[in-house]
Design a protein around this nucleic acid. Sequence first.
DNA 1: CACGATATTATACAACTTGTCTAATACCTT
DNA 2: AAGGTATTAGACAAGTTGTATAATATCGTG
Lengths: 202, 202
Amino acid sequence: MLSKTGDRRISRTQAALRDALVQLVEQRGLDAISVGDLCTAADITRGTFYNHFKDKEALVNFFEDQVIDDLGVFQERMGTLSLAELAKVAVQKKPLPLLIELFDYLRSEGEFLHALLGAGGDAAFGPRIRDCVCTNLVQSVLHKRYRESSDPFVAYYVSFYASAYLGVITRWIETGMQETSVEMARIAQRLLFIKPGESIKL
Amino acid sequence: MLSKTGDRRISRTQAALRDALVQLVEQRGLDAISVGDLCTAADITRGTFYNHFKDKEALVNFFEDQVIDDLGVFQERMGTLSLAELAKVAVQKKPLPLLIELFDYLRSEGEFLHALLGAGGDAAFGPRIRDCVCTNLVQSVLHKRYRESSDPFVAYYVSFYASAYLGVITRWIETGMQETSVEMARIAQRLLFIKPGESIKL
DNA sequence: CACGATATTATACAACTTGTCTAATACCTT
DNA sequence: AAGGTATTAGACAAGTTGTATAATATCGTG
């Protein structure tokens, strides 16, 4: 019978595989890892691996899905933000609690994200995150009347800022998450109200 | 003796492998391709493959390097642009010839870029292009006095726009390069003088 | 605690991949 | 035309993959 609290053996195996994945991707890159390598690092048998996952790709997707699901919660909450609210907190220089929470969450998954968003990681993961969080963030910020415009420029405009925010997150993670979540929330907000060629107030 | 014009056999082999790479990455993704697959698709022997490349990764890097080198030329020319020039062409709505040339070049490498920048491609390639072209583009546009600032915000500011422009390029390639190079140059320029929350003139 | 269920182990297997090597052949440059 | 060299076809050991089996250890539940 299925119970809410899963089998501890399964949890342990999955956790061990996740740690092994992060460690090995960091060391050698995803392509250079074999299922056997993962099992050795996780201290399990190959048979056990195939009990859980079809192949290496399925393993990676499984753990990526967990992060994407978690981010989905933020995604929904982002959708409820209005531009007016954003402008208000920007003026007050008071970082949005939601953004702080987001960076807190990202930090909690920092090792995984560092490995799988990095150069040795999964090429499909970055776009997935971008499409999940960032596009929505931009949509909530974009003037309502342009959200469903068919003008190609609007699509590029959205792409532009979605990639931009993923770039900020990626840089933060790549450089070891030096800034606090509050600092990052503030940076993310300042970037909303700036033009590329504009003079920056430091 | 080495001559300027290389051996035709080598050129043919490399071209065949490049085509095979693009085709197979598009079909199955880089990870799922074996050296044997590449050789079958390229109609060469595995021995020939190893005559040229140490392994699959070396092959990928070789062709990526060619693109990066080509982009290096644009990178240098970007560095000579001043913000004043950019503002001028923006007002005149006349796209910069350099930008048009850049999108022309990207189109000429469209199939390769579509495959290797895509979800089944190489996770390391996007960051390489970003660091090559985009960062420099931003540097040339960023106010001079902030270029060497140690304020962490400036670093994120640069990251933000570098990723943003790579995102625009990536979207253009992913969606099959519908827009002309002139249209894309115009879009890229318009994006320079806009704020996220700002009303867009369509 | 004891039971039934099941995750894990150890092991084996064929099919495939990898990287290297050889001798013969075909093609290229000069 | 001649010498150089890339390509071919074939073989090799080492490693990887996905699957399967029976024995064992660990789990959740009653």
